[in-house]
Every structure is written in structure tokens, then in C-alpha cells.
Design a protein around this nucleic acid. Sequence first.
RNA 1: CGGAGUGUAGUGUAACGGCUAACAUUCCUGUUUUGGGAACAGGCGACUCCGGGUUCGAAUCCCGGCACUCCGACCA
Length: 415
Amino acid sequence: MRQSQLFTKTRKEAPADETSKNAQFLIRAGFINKEMAGVYTLLPLGFSVVNKIKKIVNEEMNALGSQEILMSTIQPKEVWEVTDRWDSEKVDVWFKSILKNGTEIGFGWSHEEPITNMLKSHISSYVDLPVYVHQFQTKLRNEERAKSGVMRGREFVMKDMYSYARDEKEHMDFYNKTIDSYKRVFDRLGLGNATYVTTASGGVFSDKFSHEFQTICEAGEDNIYVHKDGKMALNEEVFNDKTLLDLGVSKEDFEFKKAAEIGNIFTFGTKKCEEIGLYFTDKDGNKKPVYLGSYGIGITRVMGVIAEVFSDNKGLVWPKEVSPFNVHLVRLGNSDASLAFADRLYTELESKGVEVLYDDRDLRPGEKFADSDLIGIPVRFVVSDKTVAENKIEVKYRTSAEAELLSETDALKIL
RNA sequence: CGGAGUGUAGUGUAACGGCUAACAUUCCUGUUUUGGGAACAGGCGACUCCGGGUUCGAAUCCCGGCACUCCGACCA
């Protein structure tokens, strides 16, 4: 896309009412727009990043055999009353409203209850199981305090997946496969090295442990302890003598870190399905409750965490897989030669299917470079009178300080 | 929800209770520029968050509200 056509603008200064790094850079670079506390619009660049993240997650979930659906945001209260989670005293993040006819409704902060209820119409026999479904949903949560930009908002995009299995073994097989799948997801997102699978308490959902995927990040809200071998990490909430004894590890081998939770998976056992009434008939004609598992990834939070983890003092630094564009083509000067060269290269790249942001604006070099660094596309091509004279392209990675002059053929190989 | 702080052009800041609310930047016009946010000239842009009060006079002081940020609590 031609940058002159991109309606968003970059800013020199961050808004005074945002102190978190992710919000400052994402706003300055024109990825998001703040509507109110904890509520952000995704602008073209930010929307593109979110779509890249979603695509990767979706591919991995499909590989697990999950089918994508999209549940409604508006939810009936009855299904939540069954599990005693409608009461705002018990769940304090509810947004609720009332229909014209007086019916009370809720806006989805989670979807276990509605989806399980819905599946009662589709699951009745052991041959119907297992069922794995996922969705990308805008969750609405009336957080008492939004904070840290897109890290903890009142409206955010989440991938939630649910597994319905016949027995504990079938359930745990999938659960464990999902852990591996999540690792692949975070590797592909570029966060693999900084992300740990941690054991945490099961929360109100389950009696046992749950697993979280925590990315080391100063802006994170969680406190975790990472084992020195890097293989194991424990959430502060379960970091006690009993847990350490159970796991056969020593307290001294752990290091304290701040982290952001970007994924969470947990087991409901059969409890939830028993409450809601999702049963199936097995081979022998016995009625049995279904095993439920829940698996989340905070899509918009991942964008925020990436912005936090990879940015430098000049701006954002996107990993290749989630960058809004593959390459930033920056044209310097307005001479016929550089104009012709850059225009032709732009067309050429587009025709090859390369996603390119073409800075065709008539601005001074310093401003263009500053914008380019701020936006953070991993590869930058510069075309100027100087490079055209040598019939070369200047190539620079966002992560490196040095640029190199390459022939067009060599430059294209990078992409 | 407890505690602290902040609300002034699009953005970032200034202004002792007292001139037409200032400066920078953005934006618009023009000239000159073109490898790291250029220079000069001219111009647009503010009910100083909202509502009361004190005062001859309020951006400034007082009261109430709202919004935003941070710390804590919460976090399915």
C-alpha cells in the first residue's frame, strides 16, 4: 500500500494520559486509537497485526482438529443462572442490559456456559464425540480498573477453544496436545523464547492446577518463578512448600520474574457439563457427563506484549510473522529516476505477492526514517538517487544498525 | 472498590487572582531545501473538562460532578 493513502498519521509525542509503552508506541505509530479507558479501536496497521496473529492461531487450532465458530456476544441469563454465575456479586465483570420487552441479557465476558448449552442440541451419543471448537470473540468485561494499554482492557479479542471428550484419557490427550500446539503458536508469533508454561491454581473452574503461558515482560501483571533449567515455571500463587515438594524441586533453583499471561488452559472435568446437562450415551447405553476443557489466547493482548517486549527507543519492532507488512519501501527524493525506480519496484513487489508499505510521500529523509523506525516493519528498502545510480537497493533490518547495498535480485531473495 | 495524582488548540507544555490565554509541534499558503523529525515568511486552530460558589476581576481559590493515569485489591 502507498503510505500517502494510509489515512492514519504518526505522532512525534505520546499522549500524556498513556504511560504504558505498548499504548504509547501503538498510538504514536497509528496502530490503535483510544476511545476511552481500556477501549481501543484497531486502525489499519493494528488490525493487520491482529489478523496476522489470528491467522497463525487459527491454523494451529485447525491442526488440532478444532472447528471455528462465532458465538453471539449477547447472552441469555438463564444459562448462567444454572451454574450460579449470573449474579454480579459472584461475577463482577458483567456488562448487562435489558431488552425492550424487559428481558435481561448479558454481554459475553466468557462463553463456556452458552457454548456448552448450545452443544446439547448436537451431542447425544458417544459417536458424536469428541468435539473441539474455537472462536475469535470480542470479550466485554467490566473491569474495575483497566490498565497498561491493550494489556488489560474492557473490550478485547480473545481466541477461546473448548474441548468435549468422552472420558478423562481422551480429554487429557487433547489437553496435552494443546500445550504443544500453544508452544508452536508462540514460537511462530516470535514470543517462544520469552514464554513459559506455568502451573497455576485452577481458579474457580477446577480443583486442580491449570496451565498458563506467561511471557516475561516488565509490564505484565503476574509474578512467576522460573526454574533455572528454563523448563518449568510456577505462578506465585502456587509457589509454596507443598507444590515444590510435590514436584520434587528446590526453592533455590527458581528466579522471580514479572510476566504477562497470554494463554491459559484448564480442565473442568465433568462438573460443568453435569450442571448444564450435557450428557451422552455410551456404547453400553449408559448416560455419562462430558469432559470439558477450556483454552484461551488473548489475541489483542499478544499484540500489546509483542509491542512491549520487542520495541526499542525508536519504536516498534515487529517479528516477521506478525508485521503488518513484509517490507517498508522508502523512497527518498523526488527525482524522475528515483520515482521511476521506486514505483516500478513497488509494482514488482506487489505482483509477487509481497506485502509492501511504500513510503511515496514527499517528505524529508529524517522524517521518513523516523516514521519507518516507529512503525517497525522488519525489513526496510531505501531507494534514492544514490542507490539508483548504482542500480542497487539499500537494505536494512529494523533490528540492525547497519544497512547494505544489494542488487534487486539479492534484495528480493530476503523476502 | 480503597489510596494518590492530573484535566488549557489535534499533540506536548506555559501563564503571580489582573492586558486579546503564551510557546513548540501538527495543519494550511508561499519561497528555498532533500540521507536521520530542515530554514524563512504568513495564516487557521481554545466556551482553559462540566456545573455551582467566592471576588470588582477566576485557567488560577472553594464545593460538587465527570474523565484520565498510577499504586493497591480483583483478575474466570
